[in-house]
Every structure is written in structure tokens, then in C-alpha cells.
């Protein structure tokens, strides 16, 4: 008997005496995240409908494989067409580890999935079901310390997706000065991703959080205060940017598959 049922503690048989609906939040989190995981997995393996000039899905950008459809590769195709059992590996599978790793190791998402998937704990003051707990002190969870590595990789992706958004202000013939619904969708996606990165705890730390003397580094202090202000909304950025990525992909897929036409304002 451990935890709240330890022999020295007050003898209360219930795992929690909370009377509010504490299970709603982890349930919603679980439902949304699992839906995203299923959708992202389907799309990563679909290997189709990810490019419709000038729009590219964020799941497939940068498209690095020679298997990419014509025009989809922004920075070349250093990876050849690889296949397993005769099936071509989707270009998305070469890159998704980076945004996935960034979100998996994110301090906000850790809270979200530790509570909703692993129930460690499911909610505050609700006893968790696990017999043992070692936290992030050993493998595999010690890998959470790699968040900074993924943060740097995420910045590279933000730059590339921003270029995708700028390129989306072309028309289907490659001429500049046009704007479509797709342009706005990719622009919103890139903006939200920058917001998510700028509000990240690692960003805040890198800009000035690691300092001992704010007074000796006034510029970094200023940057830190601004990152701190954004950091208050990191949870919101985490969710909205996730929806942004999914929506951008859904939109590009719909255009690329011919289900809808990308409407041009001018």
C-alpha cells in the first residue's frame, strides 16, 4: 500500500474526494490529441494530395525526397526514393519527427498527455493508478531534456513554412501578387507556429532566463520580459497552432484532391 493509502496517512478509502467533474479536462485532451494523432498518421502515410500549386501541406514541407510531386520541393531532394516491400516511403515520414518531437517534449504538452494518456496523475489530488514512479529521471522519459534540440529544429521549420506561406501569394501560374484563401490559411499557420515557438519555455530561457544578472543585460532582459508575456499563453498557442496545422493540411488536401477550388481574391 503506497501513496494516499500508506499506513501512516489518514485512512480514507476513496482515491479522491473531489466532487467536481475533474475527469472532463483529461477526457477532452485525450480525445482531441488522439484524433490528431490518427489524422496525422493517416496523412503521413497517404503520400498523396499534399501539393496544389502554390500550396503545400505543412505535413509534407520541406519535401525532401525524389518521390515528392513535381514543384513541391522547396530546398531540393537530398533523399532518394526509398521503398519498403515495394511501397514508397512517404516524404512526410522523413520530417515529421522534428515537429512531433518538439510537441512531444513541450512543457505544456507534457502536462496534457501525462494527465490524459498516462494518468500520472489524471487530475490534481486524484490518485494515480501506477505502483511506481520515477518521472523524467531515466529512459525513455529522460529524453524530454531534448526539448531544446527540437526547439532549434522547430525554428528551421518555421522559416520554411513561412517561405511556403509567402510563396502562396503566387497564382497557379507562378506569378506574384495574388492572394487566395490558401495564402491566408498558410500565413495563419506560419504565424501561429511562430507564436507557439516564441512563447516556448526554452525560448524564454534562451533569450534571458538563464541569466543571473538581468541588470547587466538590459536587451536580453527586455526580450525575456516579452517572451514571458507570451509564455502566459503558451497553452493557448499550443492548441491553436495544432489546429492551425491540421486545418492547413485539410485545406491543401481538399484543394489538391479537387474537392474544392482554391478561391482567389485577386
Amino acid at each position: 500500500m503506497s501513496g494516499v493509502f500508506s499506513p501512516t496517512r489518514a485512512k480514507i478509502k476513496e482515491r479522491t474526494l473531489r466532487t467536481d467533474k475533474w475527469w472532463i479536462e483529461p477526457l477532452i485532451t485525450f480525445s482531441v490529441l488522439i484524433s490528431f494523432i490518427f489524422y496525422a498518421t493517416f496523412r503521413a502515410f497517404e503520400n498523396a494530395n499534399y501539393f496544389a500549386e502554390p500550396l503545400i501541406s505543412p505535413f509534407y514541407s520541406p519535401c525532401l525526397s525524389t518521390a515528392c510531386v513535381k514543384g513541391a520541393s522547396l530546398i531540393g531532394t537530398p533523399i532518394g526514393t526509398l521503398a519498403i516491400f515495394g511501397m514508397v516511403i512517404s516524404p512526410a515520414l522523413f520530417i515529421l519527427i522534428f515537429p512531433l518531437g518538439f510537441r512531444m517534449t513541450c512543457y505544456y504538452y507534457r502536462k496534457a498527455y501525462y494527465r490524459s494518456f498516462w494518468m500520472s496523475p489524471p487530475a490534481c489530488a486524484v490518485a494515480e493508478p501506477h505502483e511506481k514512479y520515477t518521472g523524467e529521471t531515466r529512459a525513455p522519459l529522460i529524453m524530454q531534456n531534448a526539448h531544446r534540440w527540437f526547439f532549434y529544429a522547430g525554428l528551421v521549420f518555421n522559416v520554411l513554412l513561412s517561405i511556403d506561406a509567402i510563396l502562396a501569394f503566387k497564382n497557379t501560374d507562378g506569378q506574384w501578387g495574388h492572394m487566395s484563401v490558401g495564402s491566408l490559411v498558410l500565413l495563419a499557420n506560419a504565424t501561429l507556429l511562430w507564436g507557439y515557438s516564441a512563447s516556448c519555455h526554452t525560448c524564454r530561457h534562451t533569450l534571458g532566463g538563464r541569466l543571473k544578472h538581468f541588470s547587466k543585460h538590459p536587451i536580453r532582459y527586455k526580450l525575456w520580459t516579452q517572451a514571458s508575456a507570451l509564455n502566459h499563453y503558451h497553452q493557448q498557442f499550443a492548441w491553436v497552432s495544432l489546429f492551425g496545422v491540421a486545418f492547413a493540411d485539410i485545406y491543401v488536401r481538399a484543394v489538391a484532391s479537387g474537392a474544392i477550388t482554391n478561391f482567389y481574391f485577386f
Binding site: 507534457r110 502536462k111 496523475p121 490534481c124 514512479y133 518521472g135 523524467e136 529521471t137 522519459l141
Partner: peptide, 8 residues
């Protein structure tokens, strides 16, 4: 390292 950031 044992803290898993669940913010309770």
C-alpha cells in the same frame, strides 16, 4: 527530474 510538469 522526477517532476513531470503537471502543474498541480
Amino acid at each position: 527530474g522526477m517532476c513531470n510538469i503537471t502543474k498541480c
